[in-house]
Structures are given as C-alpha cells and as structure tokens.
C-alpha cells in the first residue's frame, strides 16, 4: 500500500467507452499509474468526490471530457469550484476533448481551476509528461502545465 500512496492518482471523466478503454490501456502500457478512477459523466464523479469516505483516495489529476450526458464538463467545473475548498487537496484538472471549437477552448481558458486543454486523442508523451511532472511535485503541490 505504501507504494500506491506515492503514485499519482489519475481520474478520467468521460462517457466515451472506447476512449476510456484506450486511456486505461495506455496508462497501463506505459506504466504511468496503477490507480485509475473512471466515471461516465460529471455527476457520477461529483457524487464520488463529495463523499467524505473517499477523501483519502482523492485523485491528483482529473482528465475531464466536455460533452457528456446528465452533467457535462462545464457543469462539473461549476460544482467543483464550490467543492474544492472542502477537499483539502489540490487536484489538477485537464480538459480532454475532441472539440476544436474555439468557443470551448476560450471558455476553458477562463476557468482558473483548469490547468490546460488537451485535444483527443491524447498522445502518450503529453500524458507521461503531465503524470511525471505531477509525480515530481506530489509533495510540492505545484501546478503542471503541458507546453
């Protein structure tokens, strides 16, 4: 369990089953993390994060899709902004979307809690850079921004 504690915990919120499968596979394949949470939509993730029993297993990074049923990425960010102070942990959030609509990109830029906007499909270098950066800064609580 001790090893798991140092590992970067990754969370994926996406309704696309194929992408979720691929994402998990890639993380495994590259050995980036063995701790991966995934949710089908914003609401599921929000309910899980809200639950105090899950406080000890909070992720270090959330990869968030935009277009999802029930609660989409934008709504999730609104709920998250209210929730984050109660979490007691800085969670990095990356928007992960196939939308190249400039409106979406600008909208994400305006939300302070979002670290960056990444276009799907994610490439392994981007992903490992983010995870490695987070790994290095697990204790320093620094932000990682993919350049």
């Amino acid at each position: 369990m001790a090893a798991e504690k140092d590992e970067v915990r990754i969370c994926l919120i996406d309704d696309d089953q194929t992408f979720t499968f691929g994402f998990k596979k890639l993380i495994n394949l590259k050995g980036l993390s063995s701790s991966l949470l995934s949710f089908n939509n914003g609401d599921q993730a929000f309910q899980w994060l809200k639950n105090p029993f899950n406080r000890r297993q909070l992720p270090d990074v959330i990869f968030l899709d935009i277009n999802m049923p029930v609660m989409d990425g934008w709504e999730f960010m609104r709920e998250f902004a209210e929730l984050k102070s109660q979490l007691g942990k800085k969670i990095a959030i990356y928007v992960l979307s196939s939308s190249i609509d400039l409106n979406d990109i600008y909208r994400a830029k305006k939300i302070a809690d979002i670290n960056d906007y990444i276009f799907k499909p994610v490439n392994e270098f981007q992903l490992s850079e983010i995870v490695n950066c987070l790994q290095n800064n697990v204790d320093h609580k620094k932000n990682c921004r993919y350049k």
Partner: peptide
C-alpha cells in the same frame, strides 16, 4: 460544423488511438 468538428473528430481520434494501441500491444 460542430458535429463535424466534434463527433467525427472524436470517432477518428478514437480510431487512431486504437490503431496505435493495437500496434503497441
């Protein structure tokens, strides 16, 4: 335009993704 940009992209993106994984597995 939005569907073309978003939906088609998400499918082709996934396809690329899967093909790449297929190669690496």
């Amino acid at each position: 335009a939005y569907i073309v940009s978003h939906n088609l992209r998400s499918h082709t993106g996934n396809l690329q993704f899967m093909v790449k994984l297929h190669q690496e597995t």
